[in-house]
Write a protein that binds this DNA or RNA. Structure first.
Length: 399
DNA sequence: TCTGGGGTCCTAGGACCC
DNA sequence: TCTGGGGTCCTAGGACCC
């Protein structure tokens, strides 16, 4: 989808159309650009850029908050169209999908025709611009769809893959970011085609596993099967985390601890939703100068209890925080999932069951009355706590 | 002009085991 | 006096993606 978040916002407020629009927050806030309209991009604004930078580059830009629920709604509509084209597809993200069109020729015609049909169908169902790349290989199609923007269709015929990629900047290859780009440029590689001239041994030595994958990509090969994920049913998350950047850096223990408690609750809740128990709890904290630390601890059993996550997180934080040094960001991360908690002795098992019931009850209270309705005692202590906006509609407080 | 939040995957060292 | 080889798990950090 083209400038997806911005385009969806335009559907809700047509007056935004054609104007420089930035989604992600207000121009003075701490945060980054989630999406920028094409009019804003003309000023050099792009996603991942600090909002304050965007405001400096384009003072007349209209800054709007993101609405995840809206994007999910429209993502669902797009998905509906895709489903009607082929059962073999994969949503790669909220605004990106791959379709395996093998065997649909009689229904949809050859690739390019099918691509145009899909393009029109998405446009008709959502009113949104989108771009489509069609080819024999997933990676090539993705790059082609980028090249087709805005609102275009691009077909790379079989055999033309490597020639299509060769003149493009190395950075266009998914997986090549700032760092890899710099490292490649240092050895004289600027275009995808330059890569194919290097031998695999050198790439492996200098860039490891990624180097080798890169060599394949440059030639337009796909690594692995097309629909690995779908086949292996592998869409369960491997980690669940929440983090928060303060509006102002803080060294106040009460604020930091209650935020940790709040993050722990959010993580615990999502673990219960998935029916997961986590063995490893990790915290992350960042000081004013942006130096960032993570500290992890694996438990002897797995847990989905807010209290246990919080206790572990608090200990980790206590042991590692340079007390008094202001903190910019703090977060709680869990991983190492299993379906059950594993071995607990009788006493712990009993306590565990009781707490589980407590938190499950808290979950349904939050469903009914909103996120703010129930808190860990630790979280409540934050009279000091700064308001964390959960992006959920305000609901009446329970009496 | 400072730099979000939620993820995945990779690397690398050390502990520990057989 | 010199200290194997293979494997797994844990931890920390970093690149990258949307």
């Amino acid at each position: 989808m083209d400038a997806f978040f911005v385009s969806v916002e335009e559907l809700y407020d047509p007056s935004l159309k054609g104007k420089p629009v930035v989604v992600g927050g207000k121009g003075h806030e701490r945060g980054v650009v989630s999406a920028a309209s094409y009019a804003a991009r003309k000023f050099g604004v792009h996603s991942a850029m600090p909002l304050r930078t965007a405001a400096a580059l384009c003072p007349q830009a209209i800054f709007v908050d993101g609405h995840r629920d809206r994007y999910e709604l429209y993502s669902g509509k797009v998905r509906g169209v895709i489903e009607s084209f082929t059962p073999r597809f994969e949503m790669a993200s909220i605004d990106e999908a791959y379709l395996d069109m093998t065997g649909t020729e009689r229904l949809h015609g050859p690739s390019l025709q099918a691509a145009h049909k899909l393009h029109e169908a998405i446009r008709a169902a959502t009113g949104l611009n989108n771009s489509i790349g069609a080819s024999s290989a997933r990676l090539v199609s993705k790059v082609a769809s980028d090249q087709a923007k805005p609102n275009g269709v691009l077909w790379i015929p079989p055999g033309a893959e490597a020639a299509f990629l060769a003149p493009l900047d190395i950075r266009k290859i998914p997986g090549v970011g700032k760092v890899a780009e710099k490292n490649l440029q240092d050895i004289g590689i600027y275009k995808v085609g330059d890569l194919t001239l290097l031998d695999d041994r050198l790439l492996m030595e200098r860039f490891g596993k990624m180097g080798l994958a890169l060599a394949g990509k440059a030639k337009g090969f796909d690594s692995g099967s097309w629909f690995e994920k779908e086949m292996s049913n592998d869409d369960d998350p491997k980690s669940i985390s929440h983090e928060h950047t303060f509006t102002e850096d803080t060294a106040e223990r009460a604020v930091l601890e209650s935020t940790l408690a709040h993050m722990s609750e959010k993580v615990g809740r999502r673990l219960r939703e998935h029916g997961f128990h986590a063995r490893t709890v990790q915290i992350k904290f960042r000081y004013s100068d942006f130096t960032t630390f993570t500290r992890a601890q694996s438990l002897d059993h797995a847990t989905q209890l807010d209290t246990e996550i919080f206790q572990t997180a608090r200990e980790l934080f206590d042991r590692n925080w340079d007390k008094g040094r202001p903190i910019r960001l703090i977060g709680v991360h869990t991983a190492g999932f299993s379906e059950t908690e594993g071995q607990l002795d009788l006493l712990d098992g009993d306590k565990n069951e009781k707490l589980k019931r407590v938190f499950t009850a808290a979950d349904s209270l939050r469903d009914k009355f909103g996120e703010g309705s129930v808190n860990l005692a630790g979280a409540l202590r934050g009279r000091f706590r700064e308001r964390i906006h959960d992006g959920l509609p305000k609901k009446p407080e329970p009496s």
